[in-house]
Design a binder for these strands. Structure first.
Lengths: 183, 183
DNA sequence: ACCTGAACACCGTTCAAGT
DNA sequence: ACCTGAACACCGTTCAAGT
């Protein structure tokens, strides 16, 4: 890759990060190209689809997921507190950008989405937490990881669309925790 | 209202219903006007915003909500079966059109949305079911109606985005039921 | 009072011409 | 090999001219 191409690519990711944070994942791509100081054709050369650009951006926060699992599991208290700390983090990680939660969770099931490999990281992280709960004997029988991921994705999407504060999200996570843990 | 205006209005709602069912609530409004045989300006005169058109369409299925509550409460079995039958119906009512679940649930909280009065019907219906559960002493303390509505809206939105079949939705509703009912 | 449809604006996407 | 920016397409929205 030529040096100027490399620079343009990095600059585009950086600028897209800003623009998407400000105006959501559906923000005009023109704006991204303009702020990065390149023609629209250059953006399309590097990222043929909007999703390709999303994917490139999410790569940066995906790296944090594993660390957040550890942090949540180190929470003071019992299994319930640890689980809820993780749920809150999961929702926070999904709602970093407007529109992200719905898109990531939607690509959980289907094999062909460009986001799939990325969102698999979320699913794996959640699975590891559920496995720990099972080891401690507090997980209900028959609770499926994919279902929990979708429930959390649904909560994150609602939080996103209604701009909910963490304290408004918490009661929903409580219900899910009740539903996932043994009585 | 003039007779031709009346006819146009009805025809627009009818056609919009078809178009939105086929292509989702974000379908081009041009298409609606074209199929209805009117100019785009006429559509805008009757429905100044896309949401106004959504609202007009939803008015037709809103009428069914009360009936579905009764039907669900008549389900064979205990409280849990009744509750789950209602949850399934709630999700079905929200996913009649692509994109509807997210929009309706998003307008649950905010006072100024044109959809608010309509989606209030959903919230009221759910509240009546929860109240019945409480009367039977099976509802957990501190379960809030709005939170349950949002959880169900989240499930419906995920079902919508991933085109989930009822059997894939059911396990999520089981978790919510577990979380809402006493152990 | 209502309708039409041309006109404008905005944005996504492509591609011929440049370096 | 990569970039530019004009050009086209599509769709939302408005409004002057009609009936």
């Amino acid at each position: 890759m030529r040096a100027d191409a490399q620079r343009n690519r990095e600059r585009l990711i950086e600028v897209a990060h800003e623009v998407f944070k400000e105006r959501g994942l559906d923000a005009p791509l023109d704006e991204v190209a303009r702020r990065a100081g390149v023609g629209p054709g250059t953006l399309y050369r590097h990222f043929p689809t909007r999703e390709a650009l999303h994917e490139a951006i999410m790569a940066t926060w995906i790296e944090e997921v594993a660390g957040q699992v550890e942090k949540a599991m180190a929470t003071e208290g019992g299994c319930r507190e640890k689980l809820l700390a993780w749920f809150e983090e999961y929702v926070a990680l999904l709602t970093r950008h407007q529109g992200a939660a719905a898109k990531i969770t939607a690509s959980l099931g289907c094999q062909d989405s460009p986001l799939r490999t990325k969102c698999q990281t979320y699913a794996d992280a959640n699975e590891s937490v559920l496995a720990e709960m099972a080891d401690n004997g507090v997980l209900r029988e028959g609770v499926d990881n994919l279902d929990v991921c979708r429930l959390l994705g649904g909560v994150a999407t609602m939080a996103d669309h209604s701009s909910l504060a963490p304290e408004d999200v918490r009661p929903m996570l409580d219900v899910i925790a009740n539903g996932v843990l043994k009585a």
